[in-house]
């Protein structure tokens, strides 16, 4: 029992949740875009934009709220750019790769020109404070898991839950329809372009807040390419969750905790280093195998990812049973 308690130390849980937060926000952004029928590979770019703009705004205003808002707006603008390109019929995959490269180099360029830091910029700023939840914070295991993070961590998980609930309402259902069959949705009178634009703008904002979490929430510094692939991991997490809102949190936790586990395993066990680093990937492989198996089963049902729930029921109750 003791080694287990030692392994799941409060610091390990905190590390895992902190590393999960940007991935989760990015994964919501990716899933939201996918549900609108757009493969959004520019999550990494939006995270970097958010990380950079957030820190610049924090340095300028001294207010973390302004910083997060600025990051959200900058990300939303990037998302808007992507939506505009989509309307013009630009290949979004190429566009996204371009955006990723642009964000990486532009952030470094601006950092050098504006702030003189060549590779790392460390302004004198106050990062977000941690919130201790009064009662829950004192419960042994649960308190460590749930209490003592900054506001963005709670916001990320709240966003994931809100995203799940969103699909129980009419706009969410419309979005689902657009993602599955844009032509049919348009024929049914749904404003497809408007939904796609809104989704991309929201996705941009969310991913940027994920980036701002790193600079405004955690580190108070900006380093070249500091998201280090978190945006791509977010895209992968969303794919692993099959873009199902309910699976986004566990999929993100898997990736977020994989590094925390690897760190922790080294300090508590004598397992060889290579094995420790392999474990998270092994876990991912197992989960992907499971997902693949489900997809094969789904293929047997004429390519529908799942059997439409309540298909036998008339359509009106399906949209109004949100509470049940």
């Amino acid at each position: 029992m003791d080694p287990i308690a030692n392994f799941f130390s409060s610091e390990m849980l905190h590390s895992g949740i902190r590393l999960t937060t940007p991935i989760l926000l990015g994964a919501i952004a990716s899933a939201l875009s996918s549900r609108a029928g757009v493969l959004n590979l520019a999550i990494e770019a939006k995270m970097l934009v958010g990380a950079f703009v957030g820190l610049v705004a924090l340095d300028a205003s001294g207010s973390t709220f302004t910083a997060i808002l600025a990051a959200f707006l900058a990300g939303a603008a990037t998302g808007g750019l992507m939506a505009g390109a989509h309307r013009l019929g630009v290949d979004l995959i190429v566009f996204a790769i371009g955006l990723n490269m642009l964000a990486l180099e532009l952030s470094v360029y601006l950092m050098r020109v504006l702030f003189g830091g060549t590779g790392v910029w460390t302004p004198d700023v106050e990062t977000l404070g941690d919130i201790d939840i009064p009662l829950i914070g004192s419960i042994p295991f649960l308190g460590d898991l749930l209490s003592g993070y900054n506001i963005l961590v709670y916001l990320a998980f709240a966003a994931a839950i809100a995203f799940t609930l969103f699909f129980r309402y009419r706009p969410g259902r419309h979005l689902l329809a657009i993602g599955e069959a844009p032509g049919a949705a348009a024929a049914a009178g749904i404003a497809v372009p408007r939904y796609q634009t809104t989704s991309l703008v929201m996705a941009g904002g969310l991913a940027a807040v994920g980036g701002a979490f790193l600079t405004v929430g955690e580190l108070g510094l900006f380093a070249r390419g500091m998201t280090d692939g978190a945006g791509w991991i977010a895209v992968t997490a969303a794919l692993l969750a099959m873009n199902r809102p309910g699976f986004l949190i566990p999929a993100s936790l898997l990736f977020g905790f994989s590094d925390a586990f690897a760190i922790r395993l080294q300090s508590t066990t004598d397992l060889p280093q290579v094995v420790v680093q392999l474990l998270p990937f092994l876990a991912t492989l197992v989960v992907l195998g499971f997902v693949g198996y489900r997809a094969m089963r789904a293929a047997a049902t004429l390519g529908m990812p799942k059997r439409p729930r309540g298909a036998a029921r008339p359509p009106q109750p399906a949209t109004s049973t949100a509470g049940t």
Partner: peptide, 23 residues
């Protein structure tokens, strides 16, 4: 504490350091 050849991830560096400190 060995990382997985991640040389550009300050957030991971911070987490790892805090984990070592907690020990």
């Amino acid at each position: 504490s060995y990382l997985n050849f991640q040389f550009a991830d300050p957030a991971l560096g911070k987490s790892t350091a805090l984990d070592l400190h907690s020990d």
